[in-house]
Simulated assay, not measured.
Amino acid sequence: MTAALVEKKDSAPGNAPRPSSPPPFSARRPKRERAFDDVPRWQIYVPLGIYLLFTLIPFYWMLLFAVRPAGSTSLVPWPMTGEHFSKVWNERSFAVFFQNSMIVGVATLIATTLVALAGGYALARFDFKIKGGFMLALLCSQFIPGALMLVPLFEIFKNLQLINSLVSVVIAETVFQLPLSIILISGFIKNVPVTLEEAAWVDGCSRFKAFCAVVLPLLRPGLIAVGSFAFVHSWNHFLFALMFLSEQDKQTIPVGLNTLIGADSVDLGALAAGGVIAAVPVVIVFAFIQKWLITGFSAGAVKG
Rank of each mutant, 00 (worst) to 15 (best):
G275L: 08
Q251N: 03
A270C: 08
A270F: 01
Q161H: 15
Q251D: 05
A200S: 15
H84G: 03
L216Q: 04
M80C: 11
K250R: 14
W235G: 00
P152N: 13
L150F: 06
E33I: 12
P23T: 03
E197V: 06
P179F: 10
P40W: 13
P22D: 14
G262K: 09
V96W: 05
V280A: 06
H84S: 13
Y60C: 14
G146M: 02
A27T: 15
A122K: 03
I183A: 00
K8R: 14
P179N: 12
L52I: 15
T259G: 12
E7F: 01
I44K: 11
L52W: 10
P193M: 05
E83A: 14
P58A: 09
W42S: 05
V282D: 02
L162V: 09
D203F: 03
F211I: 14
F211C: 09
M102P: 00
D267Y: 06
A213Y: 01
M80W: 14
S165M: 13
F231V: 12
F188E: 02
S181R: 01
L260I: 00
L180P: 01
S21V: 11
P79E: 09
L139S: 08
K209M: 12
K291L: 07
R32G: 08
P30D: 03
P40V: 07
L64W: 02
W42N: 00
A225E: 01
D264H: 08
A116Q: 08
Y121Q: 12
Y121C: 10
V266R: 05
Q142L: 15
I144G: 12
C140K: 13
V67K: 03
W89V: 07
G146V: 07
K291M: 06
I50A: 12
Q43H: 10
D249V: 10
G133M: 07
F286L: 14
F126N: 11
P179L: 11
W61Q: 08
L216A: 13
F143I: 07
I253A: 08
T195L: 11
W201H: 15
V169G: 02
N258P: 03
I253H: 03
L223Y: 02
S181A: 15
I189M: 06
K87A: 08
Y121A: 13
P179T: 11
I156T: 05
A210D: 02
M80V: 12
T259E: 13
V151M: 10
A12S: 13
L139C: 09
L260A: 05
W201V: 01
P24G: 09
V6P: 00
G275T: 05
V106H: 06
S265A: 12
S20V: 13
K158R: 15
T73E: 11
E247Q: 14
Q290H: 15
A273P: 00
G14Q: 11
M80E: 07
G256K: 02
I294S: 13
